[in-house]
Amino acid sequence: MGIREQLKENREKILSRWFESILKTYPAETVRFLKKTKDQFHNPVGQTIKEGIEGILFELTGEGEIEKITPFLDRIIRIRAIQDFTPSEAVAFIFQLKGIIREEIDLDRIGSEELLGLDKKIDELALKTFDIYMGCREKLYELKATELRNWTYKLLERANLLKEFEENFKSK
């Protein structure tokens, strides 16, 4: 049985372990909420992560096209980029997948080439993950820097008041 079949066969187990390992990065009191609350509007963090990893694994068992996986990665990272995580903490989840897969599939029944291929794919995803993370952080800085200006721009600028206003408000 090839690696794709094995991934499909063990999908549920891999996903639940992966989900658990991501949840562990949140405070203990919160894990239950993130795990048990199924309403996607009440629990957008838990549900987005869950749907995201499902999407990633699904694509990995298929053609594994990066373009198709990116939106799932983006959703998860966009959240973790603004939570209490260092950069490495925010993106570590993608590396965890390798270990989980190794433990959940029968390594004897697949060729090393196949495993390498999968590892390479995940490494590619990891690089993508860094890019997305950086993109999110840059967006945040941009928003911090431009919000006031965008908000007040038109009229204050016309009235030559922009400068005075910014000095008043943002001289810190």
């Binding site: 562990k24 990065t25 405070p27 570590a92 989840f93 590396f95 965890q96 590892d119």
Partner: peptide, 17 residues
Amino acid sequence: KPPKPDELAKSIEYKTP
């Protein structure tokens, strides 16, 4: 050698006080 599985994750200091 690709980074060891769970390697990165281990460096994480879990948030639970």
